[in-house]
C-alpha cells in the first residue's frame, strides 16, 4: 500500500480487525479518563491539567489498598471513588476557585501547578519505581478470533460504558444533576434561582475526580503505576475531549473509541514509535478546523 510516497506494510484483514478491536478496548479507557475531564469542562469551562495527576494518585490508592490490605483493585473502587470525590471537591473549593480569579488561562496555570505538586509529591513519597497490581485473572480472557481479550480489558470496556450511562442518568434524573446542568447552561440565572454556584462547581469537580478514580481502578490491573503515568493519558484525554466536543458525554465515548482505534492502526502501519503521532495530529487538526468537535455545543451535556 502506498501512502504519501511511503510504502506501508500490507496486512491481512484479520490483523487489521484485531488491531481495531484492541483499539476499542484501549479506547474505552481513554473514554473513561476523558469523561471526567469533559464533565468538568462542560460545567466550569476549565481545562483541568491536573486530571492526569489525579488519575495517577487514584492508581496509587488502588495499589496501596491492594498491597497493604489485600483489597481487589475493582473492589477498591468503593474507597477510591468517594475519596476522589472529596479530594476534587476540596481542590476546586479551596484552591482552584480561589487562586484563578475566574480567568481561563490562569485556571489552566493553576491546574498545571497542581499537577506538578501532585506528581512530584508522588515522586517524593513513592519514588519513581514502577509498581504493579497483580491479579490472578490478568491473563485469562476470551478469544475473539481476531484478537484475545483479557478480563481486565473487558472489565474496562464494560466499566466505562456503565459509568458513562450512570453519569448520564445522574445528570438527568437527580436534583443535583439538574442543578449542575442549570449552572452549565446559565451561570447567572442559576445563581438567581438560589443555586449555590460555588458548591455546584466543587461538586462537579468532585464528580470528575471520582470518575477518574474509577478509571484508575479499572486501569490498575493492566498498567503499572509510577508518578508520570498521568502524562501518558493527559494529552490523549485532551484529544478525546476536543475531538468529541468539549462538554459532551457521548463525544467522550465516541472520541475515546476513535482515538483508541486510530492509535492502534497507526501503530500497526507506522510502527510503535511514529504510530502515536496520529493522536497529536488529530488533536492539532481538530483544534484548527473544528474546535467544537464532533458533538460540541457551546456549553453542553450531550
Amino acid at each position: 500500500m502506498e501512502f504519501f510516497g511511503l510504502t506501508l506494510p500490507s496486512y491481512g484483514w484479520e490483523t487489521v480487525l484485531g488491531s481495531a478491536v484492541s483499539g476499542v478496548f484501549l479506547g474505552a479507557i481513554y473514554a473513561l479518563v476523558a469523561l471526567g475531564l469533559t464533565l468538568i469542562y462542560g460545567v466550569l469551562h476549565i481545562i483541568n491539567f491536573a486530571h492526569g495527576a489525579l488519575l495517577m494518585l487514584g492508581m496509587y490508592g488502588v495499589f496501596f489498598l491492594w498491597k497493604l490490605a489485600g483489597i481487589d483493585p475493582y473492589l477498591a473502587m468503593l474507597i477510591v471513588v468517594p475519596g476522589g470525590f472529596a479530594l476534587g471537591y476540596l481542590l476546586q473549593r479551596f484552591v482552584i476557585g480561589k487562586a484563578s480569579h475566574g480567568r481561563d488561562e490562569i485556571i489552566l496555570l493553576v491546574t498545571l501547578g497542581l499537577s506538578i505538586v501532585i506528581e512530584n509529591g508522588a515522586l517524593f513519597f513513592f519514588s519513581a519505581t514502577e509498581r504493579s497490581v497483580l491479579v490472578p485473572y490478568d491473563l485469562d480472557g476470551i478469544d475473539l478470533g481476531v484478537t484475545y481479550a483479557v478480563w481486565p480489558e473487558i472489565a474496562a470496556l464494560a466499566g466505562s460504558l456503565a459509568i458513562t450511562g450512570a453519569l448520564w442518568l445522574f445528570m438527568m434524573r437527580t436534583d443535583t444533576g439538574r442543578a449542575i446542568r442549570a449552572v452549565a447552561r446559565e451561570r447567572r440565572g442559576a445563581q438567581l434561582v438560589g443555586i449555590n454556584v460555588d458548591h455546584i462547581f466543587a461538586v462537579t469537580f468532585g464528580l470528575g475526580t471520582a470518575i477518574v478514580a474509577a478509571a484508575a481502578s479499572l486501569l490498575a490491573p493492566t498498567y503499572p503505576v509510577h508518578p508520570q503515568i498521568g502524562n501518558l493519558f493527559v494529552l490523549i484525554a485532551f484529544t478525546v475531549v476536543v475531538l468529541g466536543g468539549m462538554g459532551s458525554f457521548v463525544g467522550a465515548l465516541v472520541g475515546g473509541f476513535l482515538i483508541g482505534i486510530t492509535e492502534q492502526l497507526g501503530r500497526l502501519y507506522m510502527g510503535e514509535s511514529l504510530g502515536v503521532i496520529t493522536v497529536s495530529v488529530i488533536f492539532i487538526l481538530v483544534l484548527l478546523l473544528r474546535p467544537t468537535g464532533l458533538f460540541g455545543q457551546r456549553s453542553g451535556q450531550g
Binding site: 501547578g113 497542581l114 499537577s115 506538578i116 505538586v117 512530584n120 509529591g121 508522588a122 515522586l123 517524593f124
Partner: peptide, 10 residues
C-alpha cells in the same frame, strides 16, 4: 529524595 524542589515550584 527527588521532587522537593518541584513541589515547591508548583
Amino acid at each position: 529524595r527527588p521532587g522537593v524542589d518541584l513541589i515547591l515550584f508548583g
